[in-house]
Amino acid sequence: MADPALRGGRTGWWRPYRAVLASRVRAQTSYRGSFALDLASSVLIGLVELAEIWVLYRSVDALGGLDLAAVLLVFGIADTAFSTADLFVGHVDTLPRYLRAGTLDVFYLRPQPLLAQLVTSEISVRRVTRIGVGLTALVVGLAVNDIAWSPLVVAFLVVVLVASTLTFAGLFVAAAGVQFFLVDASEMTNAVVYGGRYAATQPASVWGKPLVALFGFAVPIAFTAYLPVVALLGLPGAEWLPSWLGWLAPLAAVWTWAVALLAWRTGVRHYQGGGG
């Protein structure tokens, strides 16, 4: 994005954003029963996903070289990062609705970049509890694994969480960019976004070559949680995904955003307007 507002170069750029967020939070919490149900549902989704992992691990000691403790850490990092990205950026997946209704053109009337407007137009507060589930898994995962704590490890974890969140946020933006071409086939990008979310909680070592190509490198999902965890725990990693790649999590975020901004730019240029 070329606009200084998004980079924060202009002082006080966040004041309007804060006003928008406050109004969105008020709007979403005004139907209290519905909002409480949303919060509870988010927790339940997280718990069910954990239960699915637990059911498999009841019968086996390790999957793809990860025991239950290690996979809990993978789940914690992946889920925290994805849910945080979803909270701040996830609503860009409503773009097809604007495209179909022709209401996207309204955004063009305002003196801000389209992407910045879409990202800052909403915040999905109900994801907060989902982040809570992810963080709980992360904390428990850190506690039950044998980690040689040091300032470097703490810094590594912080960098990984930020990079993974950015990777998922980039994934949302890339998917939105492609929507300009697909419009009606949003499930195609869901394959990568939500398939990516599911893939991120798996031990990537169980993947065959096509999946390694797709979620290991093209869409660098393996870099969000699996590779950092095997690097952190000193585990061997997989054939095409050696554990030292875990240190390159920030590169995955850079790569995703390069693709995302390219996809977005191409999509915006392709867009012809809603007519009228």
Partner: peptide
Amino acid sequence: GAALGGLVANVTFGFLKVSVLTAAVAAG
């Protein structure tokens, strides 16, 4: 278009499910 999109999503999830479930069978 929606049907094709759904197919792509179902296939992607299919590959992921197959990998983890066959790994579980192998581990067992």
